[in-house]
Computed example of a mutant assay.
Amino acid sequence: MPCRQGVLGMTDALLYLSRDDIRALSIPPAAAREAVLQGFRDYATGLTRSLPKSTLTLGPGHGFQAMTAASSAQGIATVKWVAMAPVAAGSPLPAVSALICVSDYETGQPLAVLDGDEITLIRTAAISAAAASLLASANPRTIGFVGCGLQAHAHLAAFRDLFPGLTNALMLSRSRSSAERLAEAAGAAGLAADILDDADALLARSDIVISMVPGAAGMTPFLDARRLKPTALAVAVDTGRSWKPETLPAFNLLATDSLEQSRAPYGVDGNPVSTVAFQHDLIALAGAPHPTAAAGRSLFAFRGVAFADLALAHLAVAQARAQGLGTVLPR
């Protein structure tokens, strides 16, 4: 099987990229989106291999995950260790914390350790944008954010880059201060921003809705798919927990990142819902886009795949070496 030559190569030293290092790279959203799309294409053709996400669940929004992938195309293998914990509204602590280890594909020698939080932010927004590039209508004007934390800011940048014709951003959050910060960022990006208190109003006005609601004990689904515009795209970064399961049949198309990993959106109990099932995944759509997706309501709900983290880790390490960023540690 043909393989593209990776650019990282073997080294006697270990490169550490901190959160600040990765932020300093300023990875362009378009580069992240294309890296992710290529990662899905490589997986489809067998150049990249990956294990389904392994999860140890301790409670609502609380657990640990391991995500492993290897790519002959990029010449690396990666594992991401993810910790999740519930956080109170307005807390400065992240709900997700992660590290990524990078090894040489051929020799297995460690090459780099990366802060996984920033990579996860970039990767997750890039997956959402990659899906939107294949499923959304051509000229959306209004984007709605349900949940206004760090992921919302990453998605704002990714979707503003993908759809420069966006004019309006709507925010709904349990934290007023988070919504105000996102509204300020949207305004700085040239969008008219409006903070709402009513979920139905946000759904009715948005061409694209991104739900990013963290899991928490006692959470009740509150988003009604029937309130969406007839041609809206919903991206459920929260895997679907914020959507009322009984309303999900209102979607004409339901897709995820990997059907091998997920067969249906997930409910508040962490289990797949029984009201609908996914019909497509990004592995197939990246090579053959759906011809009529933009003509109806679409849902893209996903848990994240290890080979997308690999794609972003490869991009980050290559750029860091080119720019001389990071800390070189002895082996």
Rank of each mutant, 00 (worst) to 15 (best):
240 G>N: 05
249 P>H: 13
238 D>F: 02
168 N>Q: 15
227 R>G: 05
162 L>H: 02
235 V>E: 08
173 S>H: 02
245 P>V: 00
176 R>D: 14
205 R>L: 11
178 S>K: 12
193 A>C: 09
193 A>M: 12
183 A>D: 11
239 T>P: 12
169 A>Y: 12
241 R>T: 07
195 I>H: 15
242 S>A: 10
217 A>Q: 06
197 D>A: 15
165 G>Q: 09
202 L>C: 01
225 A>S: 15
182 L>G: 04
191 L>C: 06
175 S>T: 04
224 D>C: 00
235 V>I: 04
218 G>I: 04
237 V>P: 06
228 L>F: 03
208 I>Y: 04
174 R>F: 15
220 T>P: 09
176 R>E: 15
231 T>P: 08
215 G>M: 03
223 L>M: 11
178 S>P: 09
207 D>F: 06
243 W>T: 05
215 G>L: 02
191 L>H: 08
217 A>T: 06
199 A>P: 11
239 T>Q: 13
250 A>T: 11
214 P>I: 01
186 A>H: 11
192 A>M: 14
203 L>H: 04
246 E>H: 07
204 A>L: 10
218 G>D: 05
246 E>F: 10
176 R>Y: 13
237 V>F: 07
191 L>F: 08
190 G>S: 05
228 L>I: 10
180 E>Q: 15
191 L>M: 01
200 D>W: 00
163 F>I: 05
178 S>A: 09
222 F>M: 03
215 G>N: 09
248 L>H: 07
212 M>V: 04
200 D>E: 06
198 D>V: 12
229 K>C: 09
208 I>C: 13
183 A>M: 12
212 M>G: 03
239 T>R: 15
226 R>M: 14
162 L>T: 11
219 M>A: 02
248 L>K: 03
197 D>P: 14
195 I>M: 14
249 P>Y: 09
188 A>G: 11
203 L>P: 12
184 E>F: 10
249 P>D: 12
194 D>A: 15
184 E>W: 13
175 S>D: 09
198 D>P: 13
244 K>L: 09
177 S>L: 12
242 S>K: 01
168 N>K: 15
204 A>H: 11
183 A>G: 14
213 V>N: 09
219 M>E: 10
234 A>W: 03
203 L>C: 07
174 R>Y: 14
168 N>G: 13
201 A>K: 11
